[in-house]
Amino acid sequence: MAADIAFAVCGVSKTYGGRQALNHVTLSVAKGEMIGLIGPSGSGKSTLLRALTGLVRIDADAGTISAFDAPLQTHGRVIDKVQAVRARIGFIFQSFNLVGRLSLFSNVMVGALAKLPVWRGMLGLWPAEDKARAMQALARVGVADYAGQRANTLSGGQQQRGAIARTLVQGAEVILADEPVASLDPVAARKVMGALQELNRNDRLTVIVTLHHVEYAIRYCPRIVALKAGQIVYDGPAKGLDRKRLIDIYGPEIDDIMPEDPS
């Protein structure tokens, strides 16, 4: 396997009760890519993204997921040292998943936990250079002014940019973003997507982002992977995603919400 592979997903299935969320998915992600993962609700995008960091366990009968050339999940078992792999993967959630009662600064410092001794992280004795990196990260995404405020007093866009700063403090090589802009207004959404794009281009971070809005995926992501009913139905450049393919993925109603043909 080449060293520039970030993730290799091979024949992975996931069943919730009787419902099949992922059905023999195979996907390879190279380092430095920015991939838009699209598909209708319930198509398995979030499940796939969560499986990549071991937050979702795949079915036992088949399939493997490896991250950074080492197995992460095999036959429904997540490796014991998953914490070390997670430390290299930043995860952005639709609902931000910040701790509302902690300050934005403390939330960002949580990103440093994996590298510190356990007792030190427990007591919140952050090293000075980590604190400086946290403030730099907050400044970079434009929310340094709110560092001392409780996360739940901030707007959705500010919280989501704080979550991105958390992945920077973490020193993540990969950012997995699960519907990062689904609960944001268009201006805030553009700022968040712009921040992800900037990290992909300048820092060579691998970014995989699930999106409801096809137009964001086409605008920001060079490569698009589309899921439908747990199977990959499109994997190629954003340019190749024409109206006919979108109708295949979403059904004919997509015509009403796509004002212009992207091709």
């Binding site: 998953v82 701790v99 990103g111 992280g121």
Partner: peptide
Amino acid sequence: EGVRAVGAA
């Protein structure tokens, strides 16, 4: 889950 995802103990 957010804390777990950074690789925390």
